[in-house]
Amino acid sequence: METVSPLEKALRALALTLVVVFFMFPIVWIFLMSFQTNETILRIPPTVIFEPTLSNYTALITGKLTTAAGTLDIAFMKNLANSVFLSVTSVALSLVLGVPAAYAFARHKFRGSEDIAFTLLSFRFAPPLLVLLPLTQYFQWMGLANTYIGLIWVYQLICLPLILWIVRGYFEDISADVEYAYRIAGHSWFATFRKIALPLAGPGIAAAGLLAFIFAWNNFIFALVLASADKQPVTVGALAFVTSSGIQYGQIAAAIVLSVTPTLALALYAQRYLVEGLSLGAVKG
C-alpha cells in the first residue's frame, strides 16, 4: 500500500482549500451583500465588517422598493412564484412525454428513429433568438401570448430534448434480458416499463429532471418576450432593480439568494439520486 508523506497531505489540503475558496467566494460575497445597503456595498475599499440590515429582504417580500426617486412597486415574490410554477409544470410535462419516448427510442429501433431523435435534440442546439420571432407571431395568432400555457409549451424546447436524450442513454444501459424475462412471464409492455424499466432508471430520470429544472429556472429570453410582468419569472423580474435612480445592488443580491434557494434545496435533496444518475452507465461491460 502506497504511503503518503505529510508534505503531500499538506499540499493536497492546501490545494483543496484554494479550490473551495475560489468557487465559494462569489456566493459568500453575494450573501453578505444582501445584508448591506447600497452605500456600504459601494464603499471603497470594500469591507466585510458592516452593520447588517434586513431592508433588502423586506423590500422584496413587501413589494416596496425605496429609492432616491421615491417608492417603487415590485412584484418579486410573484415572479418567484411564477418561476416555481413554470419550472415544475414544464419539467413534469417533459417527464410524462419524454420518459416513454426515451424508452421507445432505446428499445424499439425503427426506420428513421435516429433522425427523429436527432431532430428533437436539435431544438436544444438552436439559439433562442432563432425561433423567437416566429414563436411570437404564432403565439399571437393562436392566442397563447402572455399565457402560462404558452410559456409551459415553449419551455418544452428546453426540457424535453434534454430529458429525452439523457434518459434514453440510461435505458440503453439497462440489460434488455431482464425486461424480456418479465415479458415471457406474461406481463404486458406497459407493466414491464412501469415495474422494471422505470425503477432501474430511476436515478437517471431524477438526474435528468433536476438538470431540466435548472435550465428551465434560468431561462430568460423566452419569458422576456412572450410574457408580461404578471407572468414573468424571477430571471426577468430582476430587471426591476435597475431603476432611473441607479442600480439597487443590495436588492439584487437578496433576490439572487432567494432565487437560488429553491434550486439549491432541490439539488441537496436529490443529491443521492443525482450522483447515482450521473454515474449510471459510466462503466459498461
Results as ranks from 00 to 15, higher is better:
residue 1 M to H: 09
residue 6 P to W: 06
residue 10 A to N: 06
residue 15 A to M: 07
residue 19 V to N: 06
residue 22 F to Y: 15
residue 23 F to K: 06
residue 24 M to K: 01
residue 25 F to H: 04
residue 27 I to W: 08
residue 32 L to P: 04
residue 41 I to A: 01
residue 44 I to K: 02
residue 49 I to F: 15
residue 50 F to Y: 06
residue 50 F to M: 04
residue 61 I to Q: 10
residue 66 T to A: 13
residue 68 A to C: 01
residue 68 A to P: 03
residue 73 D to C: 01
residue 73 D to V: 05
residue 79 N to A: 13
residue 79 N to P: 03
residue 82 N to E: 11
residue 83 S to Y: 08
residue 95 L to I: 15
residue 99 V to D: 01
residue 101 A to L: 15
residue 103 Y to H: 06
residue 107 R to D: 03
residue 110 F to T: 08
residue 113 S to W: 05
residue 114 E to K: 09
residue 119 T to W: 14
residue 125 F to S: 10
residue 134 P to L: 00
residue 139 F to C: 08
residue 141 W to C: 02
residue 146 N to C: 00
residue 149 I to P: 10
residue 150 G to F: 11
residue 152 I to Q: 01
residue 156 Q to S: 09
residue 164 L to M: 12
residue 164 L to P: 13
residue 165 W to F: 09
residue 168 R to P: 05
residue 171 F to V: 00
residue 173 D to N: 15
residue 174 I to Y: 03
residue 175 S to Y: 01
residue 175 S to P: 15
residue 176 A to G: 12
residue 185 A to Q: 08
residue 195 K to D: 07
residue 200 L to S: 01
residue 200 L to Q: 01
residue 201 A to N: 12
residue 201 A to T: 07
residue 203 P to S: 05
residue 204 G to H: 02
residue 207 A to M: 08
residue 209 G to R: 02
residue 215 F to Y: 12
residue 217 W to V: 01
residue 230 D to A: 05
residue 231 K to L: 15
residue 233 P to D: 08
residue 234 V to K: 04
residue 236 V to M: 12
residue 236 V to G: 11
residue 244 S to C: 01
residue 245 S to D: 10
residue 247 I to A: 13
residue 247 I to D: 13
residue 249 Y to N: 09
residue 252 I to F: 04
residue 262 P to L: 00
residue 262 P to E: 03
residue 263 T to D: 07
residue 264 L to A: 15
residue 266 L to N: 05
residue 267 A to V: 13
residue 270 A to W: 13
residue 271 Q to H: 14
residue 272 R to M: 14
residue 276 E to H: 07
residue 278 L to E: 05
residue 279 S to T: 14
residue 279 S to V: 07
residue 284 K to Q: 10
residue 284 K to H: 05
residue 284 K to T: 06
